[in-house]
């Protein structure tokens, strides 16, 4: 547990100094919302119809920026090697990086989310809490799969481009489940979201477990 918190704490200190990760995710997320607003302004579509998709496009692409940044920091000066020399298992190292990636994504998302509500003229009621809850579950899945994939893509020549190519096909279940659950909450139907929440949780558990076991291969020289 101690090394895990050490990794998260270290990432927070670096982020407080460089302010690169959260600010870029935040800016990108809001830009996506604004572009969607312009793109669909004249369509006359109900805000709650395109809203969920808009929100998760913003979240999942912003997450990719954060993941790229998080790994660039470990690759710079070969810092990852320093982590590998420390007396902790490869799996623990993975969990540590998942925890800090998750934390940064959530901070950015919880600022983007109110902006989303304001831009779409939604009132801050129970729906806000519901969608915040789904964001936590969905983001856990995205960071679970994204942390290991960003480690893989960091080994290629064009790492920034490679990550979305690897990440997006694998996160399709998260996107589908999160968009559906968000949409049901937003439309205030009798939400039948338990199945979607199960998929989100199941995805996170499966990927956390598998990645924990195979992370060694992703970092080994």
């Amino acid at each position: 547990m101690k090394p895990l918190t050490a990794i998260v704490f270290k990432d927070i200190v670096i982020e407080m100094r460089s302010k690169e990760s959260i600010s870029s995710m935040l800016m990108f997320g809001i830009l996506v919302l604004v572009i969607f607003m312009f793109a669909f302004e004249s369509s006359g579509l109900e805000k709650t119809v395109i809203g969920p998709g808009e929100l998760w496009v913003a979240f999942s692409f912003a997450a990719i920026l954060g993941l790229n940044r998080s790994l660039a920091m470990e690759i710079d000066n070969d810092c990852l090697q320093g982590l590998l020399l420390a007396p902790l298992g490869r799996g623990e190292l993975y969990l540590g990086k998942v925890a800090s990636n998750f934390a940064f994504m959530i901070i950015a998302e919880f600022i983007v989310l109110p902006v989303f509500f304001i831009l779409n003229n939604l009132s801050f009621d129970q729906r806000f809490i519901g969608i915040a809850g789904i964001s936590i579950l969905g983001t856990l899945g995205i960071s679970a799969v994204g942390t290991i994939l960003s480690t893989i893509s960091a080994n290629t020549r064009m790492k920034e481009v490679m990550l979305p190519i690897l990440q997006i096909p694998l996160s399709v279940p998260v996107i589908i489940a999160a968009v559906e659950a968000t949409s049901q909450i937003l439309n205030n139907e009798k939400p039948e979201i338990s199945a979607w929440l199960t998929i989100l949780a199941g995805f996170s558990i499966v990927y956390l477990t598998v990645s924990y076991l195979v992370f060694e291969f992703a970092v080994e020289e």
């Binding site: 290991i148 893989i152 598998v210």
Partner: peptide, 9 residues
């Protein structure tokens, strides 16, 4: 690793 993660998907 990627193939494994992809097929688990």
């Amino acid at each position: 690793v990627f193939g494994l993660l992809g097929m688990v998907d």
